[in-house]
Design a protein around this nucleic acid. Structure first.
Lengths: 183, 183
DNA sequence: AAGTACGTACAGAAAAAACTGTACATAATG
DNA sequence: CATTATGTACAGTTTTTTCTGTACGTACTT
């Protein structure tokens, strides 16, 4: 006789959710999101109604301060949104239900940030290397290295342009013409 | 009179590289890679010849143990490869020069891992929820929740299938038909 | 206007991660 | 075969990150 099928229905439901929440938070952890934040997202994902900070606190057994910072984290990533309900004073949060959109927002935010950091650094260094090459006082073997670096940076910038165009196709949803949602 | 143009050429080269290495490591940090590991990648990126662990140690001013684990990290991500040179006893490592390939490998590895964790958890929970619904002893309001969860998980699985197909298009390089390398 | 509820800033405590040095296993050298 | 070089496992330390409790500002309630 199976143990699980004897269990109380609520507990079985709880366990099925818990497993998925664990997987989600592990997954999010791969992308630099704390496991706690991941579990909070998971909790919100299964919750039918939006949650208050105090409810989250109870649900995860953590401090209200942590819930505040964790949820802000998720809001910044656009994985969770604040919602308004008539007559409810507390802030209410709910998980973004569309995972395609979540995916797009998450990587758009990350990639654009990363690209812009790198592009500006590279452009600045590229200029400096160029003036190094034009400087007659600089030793030739240094210039050789500079020339190689310029080549590397130029092709890196080309790559970043590609990333930007890829992100564009996410934002515009064009990507779904190439890889359709359902096959 | 500009300060920089008075500087020794080698130092100017060094500084231009350093700026880019910082940006690269910051960028990699966004994806859950340690900044040290990022700096190591940056160092390897600019180095024309492959490096030994001892050279890395000197270059980054860190312990050999750290270099060993960091470089293994990069090899696992396929951002760095071990190379062989006749007569050289030490292990030699060099950065993968093709950033498109690096991008593809990095996200393929990460996404496949994430998807497989989640899919197996979800399939298991999906089965359990199904048997919950078929169990006549379970209260109706629990079954309602289970039905909603099943719906959520089903569409999540659909989403993961999409991710897999997206990754397929990276691996097969088909993505470059959609977003060409050069515009 | 006084009182209350709510969310968050901040400092300190707890936990996790990164880093180091030693010790050792393996393989190359003489 | 003995010796030396090389990379890594592991335990302990340092550094970083996460988490908590208190204190406080703001805004709602009466």
């Amino acid at each position: 006789m199976g143990v699980k099928t004897n269990m109380h229905g609520e507990k079985r439901l709880e366990q099925a959710r818990e497993r998925v929440i664990d997987a989600i938070s592990q997954n999010m952890h791969l992308y630099g999101v704390t496991e706690s934040v991941g579990r909070l997202y998971g909790a919100l994902y299964f919750q039918e109604d939006p949650m208050t900070l105090d409810e989250m606190k109870v649900e995860l057994g953590m401090s209200k301060t942590s819930m505040s910072t964790s949820v802000r984290n998720l809001v910044d990533l656009k994985m969770v949104g604040k919602v308004w309900r008539k007559g409810v004073r507390k802030d209410l949060y709910q998980a973004e239900p569309d995972w395609y959109q979540t995916f797009i927002d998450f990587f758009t935010i990350k990639w654009r940030a990363g690209v812009s950091i790198n592009v500006s650094a590279m452009e600045k260094s590229l200029n400096e290397l160029q003036s190094l090459i034009n400087d007659e006082h600089v030793e030739e073997h240094i210039k050789d290295q500079a020339r190689m670096d310029i080549e590397k940076l130029t092709s890196a910038l080309e790559y970043y342009d590609w990333i930007n165009r890829l992100v564009d196709s996410f934002e515009s949803k064009d990507i779904f013409n190439f890889i359709p949602k359902k096959r």
